[in-house]
Amino acid sequence: MGWKISFCPNTNFRTMFQVRPSQFELECRHTIRSHGRQLARDHKLDWLILLLLVVIEIALNVIDPFYRFVGEGMMEDLKYPMKENTVPIWAVPLYAVLLPMTVFFLYYLRRNDVYDLHHSVLGLLFSVLITGVLTDAIKDAVGRPRPDFFYRCFPDGRDEYDRWGNVVCHGDPADIKEGHKSFPSGHTSWSFAGLGFLALYLSAKIKCFDRSGHVAKLCIVFLPILAACLVAVSRVDDYWHHWQDVFAGGILGLVVATFCYLQFFPPPYQNEGWGPYAYFRAVEGLRSNSLPPDATSMLGTNQQPASTSADPAFEDMESGRK
Rank of each mutant, 00 (worst) to 15 (best):
I225G: 01
M101N: 00
N302A: 11
I32T: 13
S212I: 11
K177F: 06
E178C: 01
Q38V: 07
V256C: 03
E25G: 08
K205E: 05
D294A: 05
T301K: 12
K44L: 14
P93A: 01
A174E: 15
G157Y: 10
N12E: 08
G165W: 12
L254I: 01
L202V: 15
W240C: 04
E72M: 12
P155H: 06
I220F: 11
D116S: 01
C260Q: 15
H118W: 01
R41N: 08
F259V: 15
P312D: 13
A282M: 08
E76H: 05
R146C: 00
I176E: 10
F69C: 06
V92P: 00
V255D: 08
W3C: 01
I251S: 05
F13D: 03
K139G: 10
F197S: 09
T15N: 14
L51K: 04
Y67V: 01
T258D: 00
S234C: 13
D245L: 04
G2V: 06
R158V: 15
A278Y: 03
L286A: 10
V283P: 07
S6Y: 08
A137T: 12
D159N: 07
P21D: 09
C208S: 07
V92E: 07
Q38R: 09
F314V: 13
A313I: 15
D113A: 01
S22L: 06
L124V: 00
P305V: 05
A310V: 00
M101D: 08
F66L: 05
V97H: 05
R37M: 10
K207C: 06
N289M: 09
T188Y: 10
V231L: 03
A96P: 02
L202W: 04
F265V: 02
T86E: 07
I138G: 07
Q18C: 11
S34W: 06
F314S: 03
G36C: 11
S191H: 07
K217W: 02
L98R: 03
K177S: 08
C28T: 11
W190Y: 14
I138W: 10
I5M: 12
L78R: 10
A310K: 12
D237N: 09
K322L: 15
Q270G: 09
V19W: 05
L99P: 06
F149T: 04
L291V: 04
C8Q: 11
K205C: 04
I5W: 11
D162Q: 08
A91T: 08
T11H: 15
A228H: 00
L230C: 06
R287Y: 13
G285H: 12
Q263D: 09
I63W: 07
V92Q: 00
F247K: 08
A227V: 14
A306G: 13
K181S: 12
F222L: 15
P100E: 09
Q263V: 02
L50W: 05
L299P: 00
G275S: 14
K83I: 07
F104R: 11
S319H: 13
M82A: 14
N302W: 03
N271D: 13
P9K: 04
T258R: 08
P266H: 12
S307I: 00
E272N: 14
C260A: 09
T102M: 13
I49V: 15
K177T: 10
A40N: 11
P268H: 02
S34P: 06
Y67Q: 05
P184S: 10
V283R: 09
F149Q: 08
A174I: 03
R144G: 06
S120V: 04
T31H: 05
N10Q: 13
I89S: 06
P184R: 04
L53V: 04
L252W: 05
D64V: 04
